[in-house]
Design a protein around this nucleic acid. Structure first.
Lengths: 149, 149
DNA sequence: CTGATATTTATGAATCATTCATAAATAGCC
DNA sequence: GGCTATTTATGAATGATTCATAAATATCAG
């Protein structure tokens, strides 16, 4: 039995391994996880899977186009399965939570900066910064709130 | 004699020191420099100015709003004097060169994502990725080109 | 199915960017 | 000119990530 995921890995020119399958599966239900979070998730099924090995796998999958890596300022790199569309991200300035944001503009106006100084633009990356619902609530009820340490 | 720069530092609530003046002056003519580049530039006038001290000064100035820090994926943090407008950046995927880009959209459409998942958006950061003129030239003449190591 | 080989993983050390702790120096006020 | 809080200097520490090398394994040829 060859799964959809196995085919996808092979089609990307990579060998199919348990580690790669496990990493992709971990990110399926847990987008925007960093290497450490991916590692801890995968360890459930592959005890002894080290953080360094996680980086090797994440880099291979990212290089093959099976994962997308985002690097918001101030947080370690995060990875996601959603690679085939041009979406952006909101990052919470309070807790670092990340969510996807579909660009509202059909014509991708963000791809047309005014002056590019001679640069040939290939992609535009938009990061929105703000407060997630949880952090909004926290900032409105600072007294009754018990903040986790 | 009190210079413009000294006033600006004092008005930001900071004490005026030679290190802070030197860092601001270094970034005046050399925007988007990273900590190491700033340090090397300042050492010309302040021999013995360490990288760690550079970080302390950069953080103080950034915290006081006198500098803006940008952190493009894959490169160390960079600093610039231009803090009072909402401009964006182009980063060269070949060599990492950074240039300013004024947002072409008067109404800042990038600040209005379609769905924010409950987030309250405060700022939008746009990073354009592409090839700088030098790297374009290099990729068109790969044979005759001598690449620096 | 079996072996050969290139790819992948595991492990520990190394690197890079940055921060922290503490002691010495100094800016700005009295 | 001295006092004190702020700032700087120094060395060590941290966090994220990569590197080097050896062991394991996926895939292919026969």
């Amino acid at each position: 039995m060859t799964t959809e995921l196995e085919t996808r890995i092979r089609d990307a020119g990579l060998r199919v391994t348990g580690q790669r399958l496990a990493v992709l599966e971990a990110l399926e239900g847990f987008p925007h996880a960093d290497a450490d979070a991916v590692n801890r998730r995968v360890q459930a099924s592959l005890p002894g899977f080290s953080l360094q090995a996680t980086y090797v796998v994440l880099n291979a999958l990212t290089g093959a186009g099976l994962l997308r890596r985002i690097e918001p300022a101030g947080s370690p790199a995060r990875y996601e399965r959603r690679v085939d569309d041009n979406h952006h991200h909101v990052v919470c300035t309070g807790c670092g939570a990340v969510e996807d944001v579909d660009c509202v503009h059909g014509a991708a106006p963000c791809l047309a900066p005014s002056s590019t100084g001679g640069f040939t633009i290939s992609t535009a990356e938009v990061t929105f910064w703000g407060l997630c619902p949880d952090c909004q609530a926290r900032s409105q009820h600072p007294i009754t709130d018990t903040q986790a340490e």
